[in-house]
Nucleic acid binder design. Structure first.
Length: 280
DNA sequence: CTTTAAACCTGGTCGC
DNA sequence: TGCGACCAGGTTTAAA
C-alpha cells in the first residue's frame, strides 16, 4: 500500500479535481471490504453536495462536504482514480462516485481494491474537523506538520520502549505515515540499525532519524510516490520514487556508500532492509 | 502494559 | 503449461 507520500500525492490530485464541484451519484458494486461500507450514510453525505475540502490524516484521505466527509484508506492495494469515463469495467471496482467539476465537466472517481484491505467510510462534520472518527482518533503525530517537533516526540515516546526502532517508527499511534518502505529507507539515511531498541537511541540519534524520516518522505512526495506493485495516483499512473530507493528490495546488492551487501531480515512479520556496516 | 503472530484477501512470481 | 509455496506499500485482533 501507499505510505504517506503516496496518499499525499493522491490527495493533491483528488483535491484539484474535486474542490468546488459536487457529487451527482454513488454506485456501490460490493460492500464487503475490510469494514462493511455504510452506503446509506455515505450517499446522504455526498449526493448533490459540494466538496469543501480534501484532506489527509496519516494514510487516510477525507473528502468533505458540509454534511460530513467521505473517508478513504487504500490498504495495501487500493486505488482511487479520477476518470472522465464512467465505465472502467475493472474486476475490483467496488464504488464509483459520479461527479460534476466546478467548471461543469463530468468526472468519475473509482475506488478499486483487489485485496479489500482498504476502507470507505462516513464521518460527521465534527469528526472530520477534529479527526475524531474511530479510525482517526488514535493516530500519532504528522511527521511533516510544522506543529510537530518530530525528534522531541520520538525521543520522549521511545523511553522505556524495548521494541526495535524500525517497528517503533512504523507504529501509527506514535507517528503516522511511515510504512515498510520508508522505515527501512529512513534508517539507512540516519545510519541507525533497525534492530536497535527504541529506548536505546540517544537524543542525537533520534534527532538524526527524525530529520531523515522527514527528508525521505518529502523527497518521495516530490518524486510522486513509490510504486513497487500496486500503487497508482489519481490519474492511474505509477509513482517515480523507486529509482531512488537505497535499500528497500535491494537484498544482496551493494550499499551505495560502502558496497557492503544489503541484508534482508524479518521484523514483526515484515521484511527490513539495511546495511550492516553503515547502520550502527 | 508490551510485543508477537495471525488474520483479513487477491494476485503475481518463482521453482519444480 | 500447471501447481504449490511464498510474497506483497496496512491495520487490527488475539494471544503470550
Amino acid at each position: 500500500m501507499p505510505e504517506l507520500p503516496e496518499v499525499e500525492n493522491l490527495v493533491v490530485g483528488v483535491r484539484s479535481a474535486a474542490l468546488g464541484g459536487r457529487f451527482t451519484g454513488v454506485e456501490f458494486f460490493r460492500d464487503d471490504i475490510r469494514e462493511p461500507i455504510d452506503k446509506k450514510t455515505i450517499t446522504n453525505i455526498l449526493l448533490n453536495q459540494q466538496v469543501t475540502a480534501v484532506k489527509r490524516r496519516g494514510k487516510y484521505m477525507l473528502i468533505e462536504t458540509k454534511k460530513g466527509a467521505l473517508g478513504i484508506h487504500l490498504g495495501m492495494t487500493g486505488r482511487f482514480i479520477v476518470d472522465s469515463a464512467k465505465e472502467a469495467s475493472r474486476t475490483h471496482t467496488h464504488v464509483v462516485f459520479s461527479f460534476e467539476r466546478e467548471d461543469g465537466s463530468p468526472a468519475y472517481f473509482h475506488f478499486i481494491d483487489p485485496r479489500r484491505f482498504g476502507r470507505v467510510f462516513a464521518a460527521t462534520p465534527h469528526q472530520a474537523k477534529h479527526f475524531s472518527h474511530v479510525f482517526l482518533q488514535d493516530l500519532g503525530k504528522e511527521p511533516l506538520s510544522e506543529d510537530t517537533d518530530l525528534a522531541r516526540h520520538l525521543f520522549d515516546e521511545s523511553r522505556g520502549r524495548s521494541a526495535p526502532i524500525k517497528n517503533f517508527i512504523m507504529d501509527s499511534r506514535i507517528v503516522v505515515g511511515v510504512g515498510n518502505i520508508y522505515a527501512s529507507e529512513s534508517l539507512w539515511y540516519a545510519k541507525i540499525s533497525p534492530l536497535r531498541q527504541a529506548k536505546c537511541l540517544s537524543e542525537g540519534e533520534m534527532k538524526r532519524l527524525a530529520k531523515e524520516i522527514i527528508r525521505t518522505l518529502r523527497r518521495a512526495i516530490r518524486a510522486g510516490g513509490t510504486t513497487f506493485r500496486d500503487y497508482r495516483n489519481s490519474e492511474d499512473k505509477p509513482g517515480g520514487f523507486q529509482v531512488n530507493l537505497a535499500v528497500y528490495e535491494r537484498a544482496a546488492k551493494p550499499c551505495a556508500v560502502c558496497t557492503t551487501f544489503i541484508e534482508k531480515i524479518a521484523q514483526a512479520g515484515r521484511f527490513t532492509y539495511f546495511c550492516p556496516f553503515c547502520q550502527k
